[in-house]
Amino acid sequence: MGMNWHVVVDNMPILAKGALLTLELTAGAVAIGVIIGLFMALARLSKRKVVRAGAIAYIDFFRGTPLLVQIFLVYFGIPMLLKWQTMPDNYQYTAGILAMGLNSGAYIAEIFRAGIQSIDRGQTEAARSLGMTQAQALRYVILPQAFKRTIPPLGNEFIALLKDSSLLSIIAIQELFYTGKIIVGRTYQPLPMYLAVALYYLVMTQLIAQWVAYMERRLGKNDLG
């Protein structure tokens, strides 16, 4: 079987479409993950034991089990819990983003927790001594500083999730990897096609890394606090 690099050139646009979907799914999941992560990080740091235990259970579960299993749990779990007879059109996208969002929420929770804990205790004390409530101290003093420090690890999480999103091919989401697989099935050119797929992933992860580095420089200008 000879190598046919034309296949790659011919299928560039279709792969690009898959890559765009990969990017969108990942961005959606990270957005959900940031919201979940923020609440879970705060819960994790709560003084109340029950709240803390709940957050720990959540974080441990999603970090301690495979994303692939979580995708199936969500994908098959929701219809069962909601007693759907049939799955709505395009349901796999919702399930896929949700599963990845739940998963990254656990990782981002730990990123935020580390960020919050890295802020000097004196900052909270200064805020509290001025009469701010715990919530006000968090909102105006701690989180703005913590967010800045979490940009690099958040970028890493974005990149890790972008790569892991190839797992969504298992529920027939036509993201980048799935698209490549289909083309291979049609053309019998696995090596050139998967190399092209890998290259697309690489370009995306590199771009994200650059963007994160840029954000970090821009936000870090005023203080290294």
Partner: peptide, 20 residues
Amino acid sequence: VNAIRREVGMVFQRFNLFPH
């Protein structure tokens, strides 16, 4: 507690200004 803290200002050894 917060009412008290409003009436009592505190200055720390390490300033603790908000760097941002």
